[in-house]
């Protein structure tokens, strides 16, 4: 049986890289004594798939990984076990069983939402609500994407699904996070800051991934649901 684990990552553990998070979970699953499935061969490894790698420095409250398990005593038991072996900064939020046909976590990712806030609680984006709405109302938002060989102009507007300022005065966005069209939150904020003439200092902002979504609709008419929407408690 395949289960999808949702977790948060914050605080000091923002500075742990993606590979280290994978290693953390491999060990956490052992500490929790979960009957996880292993690959065959001389160096068996846990059958594990992460949804979308999170950059170093970012917080998240919507991270996911899938693991294959051989036996269990229900989702509540598994959640408790995992929570008891975690550390301050990585918190398991839920565990759900996936239906047979569900795609793996990484392939399922269609979108993600982010909050971009000033670290200094005195500062916020309040007052920029209209400017942001105006920016979002455009049909084209061109950014320069630099690859190893070339730089190219890309229109990211079609990949931005929501963009507003929340009650805390932080910018919130829902954007394409699929492997083909992933939009980094900084693409959006950089373009907006240039548009609105906002100057920020390096490292002044904290980006937090709020949720990772799958597409429960069609390519033409997407319906974004949290990645574990497809799963069920067991």
């Amino acid at each position: 049986m395949k289960v999808r684990i949702k977790f948060a990552k914050y605080g000091a553990l923002r500075f742990i890289g993606h590979l280290d998070v994978m290693r953390f979970f491999q060990k956490a699953i052992r500490r929790a004594e979960i009957d996880v499935a292993y690959s065959e061969g001389f160096s068996p490894h846990q059958i594990m798939s992460f949804a979308a790698p999170l950059g170093v420095g970012l917080c998240s409250f919507g991270e996911y990984l899938d693991v294959e398990i051989r036996s269990h005593q229900g989702s509540e038991d598994m959640l408790k076990r995992l929570q008891s072996v975690c550390v301050e900064g990585i918190e398991v939020l839920s565990v759900k069983a996936l239906p047979q046909k569900a795609g793996n976590a990484m392939a399922s990712v269609a979108a993600a939402s982010y909050q971009v806030a000033y670290k200094n609680p005195e500062k916020s984006f309040r007052g920029y609500e209209e400017k942001l709405a105006e920016f979002f109302a455009r049909s084209e938002i061109m950014i320069t994407k630099e690859t190893k060989r070339s730089t190219m102009q890309v229109n990211i507007r079609p990949g931005i699904y929501e963009l507003f300022i929340d009650e805390e005065g932080a910018i919130v966005m829902k954007v394409d996070a699929s492997s083909a069209g992933n939009i980094k939150p900084s693409f959006v904020t950089d373009a907006f800051f240039a548009y609105a003439g906002i100057k920020t200092e390096p490292f002044e902002l904290q980006t937090t991934r709020l949720e990772t979504y799958l597409n429960a609709g069609t390519a033409e008419e997407p319906v974004f649901e949290p990645l574990d929407w497809i799963g069920e408690e067991f």
């Binding site: 914050y10 605080g11 917080c59 900064g89 806030a117 670290k119 904290q206």
Partner: peptide, 9 residues
């Protein structure tokens, strides 16, 4: 929304 844990010592 207010998110916990941004600041850690």
């Amino acid at each position: 929304m207010k998110l916990p844990g941004h600041a850690s010592k």
